[in-house]
């Protein structure tokens, strides 16, 4: 997993609630058996029309917005467990998603793919949307060691939750599977005791 400690970037604003993983990556693109290349179909049906032409009113098609941070309304990533959603977001180039609430499975998938899900208050997100509206180049700084996120132009900060274990994984680029493989003897011992 790619390391992440401190990230400063402008944001792409997607002011929609309950963005489900079928929108993030529609089912018809899940047939491939590898992990790469999903970014080009990220938000496919919101991003392109039926003739595969970019829809000018969608944020990813706007020259105004860029950056490694996606900001979205609450309940981001609900629905299907498809990790392809997290792969598409990472492949497109996002390193973090900010939302007032994340769906549980998506949150786990994002954390396993080097995409930081940052849950902050509704107020903070609404302020951020308003600042981006005023200035599309508005930058946010994510300080993972301090668990702090700041809208730099107005110096507004909020703290966010992440458990110590996952934080260590992000800062060092560790995967869960490395940890599990390292305790295999313990798992075998558990199996013997349980039976």
């Amino acid at each position: 997993m790619q390391k992440l400690t401190i990230l400063t970037s402008p944001c792409v604003p997607l002011n929609v609630e309950s963005v489900d993983t079928d929108q993030i990556i529609p089912a018809r693109f899940l047939k491939t058996t590898n992990r790469e290349g999903f970014g080009k179909n990220l938000f496919r049906d919101w991003r392109y029309d039926s003739e595969d032409q970019p829809k000018s009113d969608f944020v990813l098609n706007s020259a105004k917005y860029s950056g490694q941070i996606l900001v979205a309304g609450k309940n981001f990533g609900c629905g299907s467990s498809r990790e392809h959603a997290a792969w598409a977001i990472a492949d497109y180039g996002f390193r973090a998603v900010i939302s007032p609430l994340f769906a549980d499975i998506f949150k786990g998938n994002a954390l396993n793919n080097g995409v930081l899900p940052i849950q902050v208050s509704e107020n903070f997100v609404q302020t951020l949307f308003a600042e981006i509206e005023k200035n599309p180049k508005t930058e946010v700084t994510i300080d993972l060691p301090a668990q702090k996120i700041t809208i730099n132009s107005i110096n507004l900060s909020e703290y966010f939750d992440i458990n110590d274990y996952k934080k260590t994984c992000f800062i060092n680029g560790y995967d869960d599977i490395d940890y599990l493989l390292s305790i295999k003897e313990k798992i075998e011992h558990y199996e013997v005791q349980k039976s």
């Binding site: 992990r35 990790e83 392809h84 793919n113 995967d175 869960d176 599990l180 798992i187």
Partner: peptide, 22 residues
């Protein structure tokens, strides 16, 4: 419960997952 593919890999490799109690 449903899991992502990284977790499918973990469960295949170790029959375990890292989960915070909900």
């Amino acid at each position: 419960f449903g899991i992502g593919t990284s977790e499918v890999e973990m469960a295949l490799a170790t029959q375990c997952l890292l989960q915070s109690k909900p």
